[in-house]
Simulated assay, not measured.
Amino acid sequence: MFMSRLRRRMGRLAAGVLALAALEGTCTALAQQMPAMPVTVANPVSRKITESIEFTGRFQAWPQVNITSRVTGYLDKSSFVEGSLVKEGDVLFSIDPRPFQAAVDQAAAQVKITQTRIDLTKANLARAEALKKTGNVTDATYQANLQAYQEAAASIDSASAALATAKLDLNYATITAPISGRITRQLVSRGNLVVANSTSPLVSIVAVDPIYFYFDLDEASYLAYQRASKRKMDAGDAEPALKAEIGLSDEKALSHQGTLDYLAPQVDAQTGTVTARAKVANADGFLTSGLFGRIRITIGEPYEALVVPDVAVGQSSQGRYVIVVGADKIANIRPVELGPKFGSFRVIKSGLKPEDQVLINGQMRARPGGEVVPQPTKLDVPETLVPDPN
């Protein structure tokens, strides 16, 4: 009984295998009989390519100065609008100048007194010298007059230094901006006593133009940058700094121009990155410290390369490829080495020739090794290609 059922099952299995083989043969025959399908082909276009890399970072103003008073006194007046732009030398605060003016007047009077003493002691010394020649004055009297004159001459230097110090303090009573930039809110109001060289600032000023953009380079990008800079220096470029394009978080285009002017002297062992800085012009003061942004820097020299639509590129277990239609209208797979992507176009570094007919539409209708009906077209590739964000 068991053997009978087994023989029936084996019979059905053999019949199924025969049917499957017949079906496969039928499909193969149908495939061989399928007519050639129309596909769109085009020659790759040559363009000058400049490769770039993109990073994120933040703007930072430099320098930033905390304004404090160099003298102690009562704050009399402030002469700026909070948050406005100030220029170097603009008056910011006035401390009550009356005590300092009184000190200047007192020191000036002391200088006059000292000068009068000098004149008197000088005249006495001259008389003593004349009398000494005739023997009508003792040596002790002469020495006393000489000492009095020398003391008066020395005291004028001290009085003059005191006057200069008093004038300096009076000058410090007017606080001016040491740099140009944007000023913060006032932290001490009028009428308060301010202390000389206090650690609590009256206000702060941050520079506006230029402003700096800080970001981190990965190790591979850092090496590429260093090699590009070395090539420029070897070529005699006196300014090897690389150009940079920067955009804000709400901007699609990178419309702000800058140059890389600093790289940290070592790679961070924990993150494997190098801090870099770009200097950006900011004449209108629009860019503000702390803003987030994107920066793109070019790596290497421009080179000529072929460009095809990115949709023409396929991927298999063997790598990236395009389908090329030969003069015999047979579609063949062509392995290629890809470059960067620029919008809807892809750079082909190797694997294609300018005369190749690349299949750009109808990949599903083309069988590798099969015949197709090529319909040539011309690619509309912009002269200037804008790279995609990394």
Rank of each mutant, 00 (worst) to 15 (best):
L193S: 11
G16S: 13
K349T: 14
E219C: 00
A108P: 01
K232P: 01
A331I: 04
A220F: 08
L379G: 05
I348H: 03
A235T: 09
T40F: 04
A109V: 09
R70M: 05
A366I: 08
S198H: 04
F345R: 00
Q375Y: 07
I299G: 01
E54L: 05
A130K: 15
T138C: 04
K112Y: 04
Q266M: 10
N145H: 13
N390Q: 12
V71L: 05
A29N: 10
G83I: 09
Q375D: 10
Q318I: 09
I295W: 01
G319H: 03
M233S: 12
F286M: 13
P335M: 09
A148E: 02
E129V: 14
K243Q: 07
S229R: 15
E251N: 03
C27P: 00
L248R: 11
V373C: 02
M34K: 08
A144M: 07
V311C: 02
F59P: 00
L92K: 04
A61G: 13
N332F: 01
G343R: 10
L248Y: 06
M364K: 14
N361F: 14
P387C: 12
S249I: 13
D268N: 12
F2W: 10
P309M: 05
V195A: 08
E51C: 03
G272C: 11
P44D: 07
T199R: 09
H256I: 06
M233G: 02
K132I: 07
A128D: 13
I118K: 11
A107Q: 09
A228H: 14
A164H: 11
P376G: 11
E304L: 12
S249C: 00
I179F: 09
A31V: 11
M37V: 13
T56K: 15
I53D: 08
R367A: 14
A331M: 01
G83M: 07
D216R: 15
I330V: 14
F213A: 02
G300L: 06
K230S: 07
F292V: 15
P35G: 10
P63C: 11
R98Y: 07
A154Y: 04
